[in-house]
Every structure is written in structure tokens, then in C-alpha cells.
Design a protein around this nucleic acid. Sequence first.
DNA 1: GTACAGATCATTGTCAACAATAAAGTCGAC
DNA 2: GTCGACTTTATTGTTGACAATGATCTGTAC
Lengths: 230, 230
Amino acid sequence: MAVAKAETVIEAEPRTIANRLEEDIALGRILPRERLIEEELALRFGVNRHVIRQALMDLETIGLVTRQKNKGAMVRDLTPEDVINIYAVRELLERKAAELIPLPTPPEVVARLKDIQQRHSQAADAGEFANVFRLNLLFHKTFFAACGNPHLADAIQHFALKAHIARSLTVGDPKLLKRAIEEHAEMVRYLERGDRTNLVRLAVEHIIPSRDAYLETYRRRFGKAASASG
Amino acid sequence: MAVAKAETVIEAEPRTIANRLEEDIALGRILPRERLIEEELALRFGVNRHVIRQALMDLETIGLVTRQKNKGAMVRDLTPEDVINIYAVRELLERKAAELIPLPTPPEVVARLKDIQQRHSQAADAGEFANVFRLNLLFHKTFFAACGNPHLADAIQHFALKAHIARSLTVGDPKLLKRAIEEHAEMVRYLERGDRTNLVRLAVEHIIPSRDAYLETYRRRFGKAASASG
DNA sequence: GTACAGATCATTGTCAACAATAAAGTCGAC
DNA sequence: GTCGACTTTATTGTTGACAATGATCTGTAC
């Protein structure tokens, strides 16, 4: 990874580190199969090795990295089967949540979503990828939290995170990004209008392009068969 | 908790400890709101405090315990809303999995399920509650793993674990246990017959009694309103 | 007798040193 | 030159000691 001096990290909590690493993985700054060495990361973030350790364990339970005893952690390599399966669960959960969101949606929720959407769009225009990542995450979190079932919302969040490895391959695509942002705006409009049918349809369709882009990329890169190797 | 001498634990891995604690929680040996003190547990299991620490963090991410900084961990207290929400997700996931299980089911899967079911039944007759717990878990795990989507199966496992706090209140009820065991046998029969309709129906209905028993118990104990307090 | 301040105790959080393991490199034999 | 055993190095795993925090108890003033 070759990082020289410590980045200043406001908080040294494992959660914060884990989030930063998630971001690095999602943005493709750390690639699948890349090793994550505890001491290196400790140096980079300027924290104790135990904090890193904890963060890596967290990432393991999320499913973003794999760890082998005495061998260390590496970014997980998702096969096309994995991606298809993960997205199948995402579709199931997110459809359900979209069906549960109360219509008309409380105005403060709509207001918050509009605000996030706007900032997301601005970050995209400015090319601030880290912020794009965070605001996209926040939009989805806020949107699905509105379903009223926190446990369902958690599960959705969980699977969105899992999918981030897949998204790393396609995160640079400006066309996909533009489309995603437009669809966010559209979803908010459906909330306001109380259009359940279109809301559910779009919530489900919204995540498909990044899945297909991943599958396409993978196919081109490694051939048709899913030579998993893990 | 009042435990005097160390129980011999074969392996000292955090995962093993976490499983043991899950069991204790599910069987009602540790009650909601009860504090889990690291050093006590370390003594009890005869392992280092760090191992306990890790196990408690794992249980936190599962959702069985809550932890507050510098205050420690306690078994989570599920409100009726929590239980209803958790079971709603379980229904969603388990229905989907039941729809995906290939029919006819591979004979080795059926054979494994029959074996587990039989041992489960025997453990119930013998009053071996710990084994009943484990074999019940194993049955469900094996059953849903057959759906072919490991990520879906994981999520199901995850939510089944979350629900274990709720089950602790009703785990002693022999009628519920008897019914559960009979239904397991029935599910296997449907697999063999290739009866999708009944399979899905039963898979969904199967978990409802323990939910309703919990809600009923909670209502009787604390009154109709869900005075959460947590 | 009640409320506040201080002291004491119980408990968790952090760290740095050491042990254990796996990988890489080196040497010698054939 | 290549295979295998040995040595060295890189990396993770484990432990115990100490620091920090929050809870509890005690005593005193009013």
C-alpha cells in the first residue's frame, strides 16, 4: 500500500478506522486480495495496532475482508456468484422496506433526504469522491430507516456494505453516478407524491446497474467462467 | 451469576465463548438486563479477559448484548416492537429461502436433516436442554443452507440468533418444543415429496408460536404497553 | 434527615512487551 | 541446477500491567 506518514485521524476508535477502510475498499484504493498489514495501518492512521486489529475483525464480520489465523487479513474477492447472491438479498430486503415506508412520508424525512441528495449531487460535480461515497451511504440509510423497522434497516445497511467491494470496480464510472443521483431525486419525488408503485419499482431497480456493471467487468477481465480462487 | 470455579472449555477461542454465552442467554440462564462482567466470565471459562472482551463485542454486533463505554455489557432487553420487527424480517428471509430450496432436495441433505431431527427429538425426550438448543440451531442452519444462497442463509442465521433473547422466556415450554420437533419432521417430509406450497407455508408458520408466546408473556409480566426502558 | 463533596472501589480501556506461527531466504548435497 | 533441510525475517496472537472512567460509599454541613 505504500503509505508514508500518519494521516491525522480525529478519533481513534475502531469504528472510525473500519469506516475509513470501508471507504478505501469501496473507492478501489485497496483492491481485492490485497493484504492488510496491521502494523502498516497502525502507522498510517497513527493509532495502536489493537485498534486496527479490532477494525479488521469488524470488517471480517461484515464480510469485507477475510482473515486467516497467523496469516492476516486481505480484502475479500467476491465471485460473480457472491455478487448475484448478495444482490438477491438486497433486492428482497429493500423491496420490503420500500413497501413499508409510510406514505405520505413525514415532511422532516423528506426534507432531510432532499438535503442529502443535494449535497450528494454537489459532491459529485466537484469530484469529491470520498464525500460522494459518504453521502450516498447516508442517503440510503436515511431512506430505508424511514420504513419503521430498525432491524430491517440494519440488515439493508449490512448488505449494502457487503456490496461495496463489488462497487469498487465501477465507482469511477460517471454515467452510473449521474444516473444514481437522478434516481435519488426521483425516489424523493415519489415519496412526496405518495406513489408507492413507482417507489418500490425504482428502489429495486436502482441497485441493479452497479451489479451488472460489476458482472460485466469481471467477465471481461477473467473470462466467462467464475474462476473463484479463494 | 454466581459461578464459582472455572468450567473446562475445550477451545478458548472467542467464537466458542460467544456461542456458550448465546446458549446461556437463549436458555434463560442469563436474563435480559443482567450485567456481563468481563473478569467474572474470564474466571468462569478459564480464559484471558481479552477473549471474553472479544466475545462480548461479537455478541454486541449480533445484537444480543449492549455495551456502553466504561460501563460494560448487559444482555439486551427486547421490547415487543423489537420482537415483532425481528420476526418480520425472519419471515421475509425464511420464506424466500424456502422458495429457493431445490425440489427434489438432494438426498444427502435430506439424510442429514433426518439425522439431526432424530437426535433433536431424543435430546428433548432426555431433557438435555443444551443439546436441544444446539440441535435446533443446527437443523435450521442445515435446512436454510440448502437454499443455495450462502449470504441469505447467513442473514437467516443472524436473525435467528437475535431472536434467541425472546426465546429465552418460553424455552421451557414442553408443548412448544414438542410442536417444533413435529414440524421439523413435517418439513423434511415436504422436502421429500417436493411439496413446495406446504414447505413454504410451514417454514413461515413454524417460527410464529415462539414469537406470540413471548409477546403474551411480556404482556402479562409488564402490562399491555411496551415500557421499553433501555 | 437530606444533600453535597470527597474518597474509595469496581470495572473497563489502552498499551507495550513477549510468544507463536508462517513465509522467505540461504546453504549444502546430489 | 534443483531439491530439501535449516535459518532468518515478517507478521500475527496473547498476556499482564497500568490508566481512565464511572459507581458506590462515607462523612459532614445545614
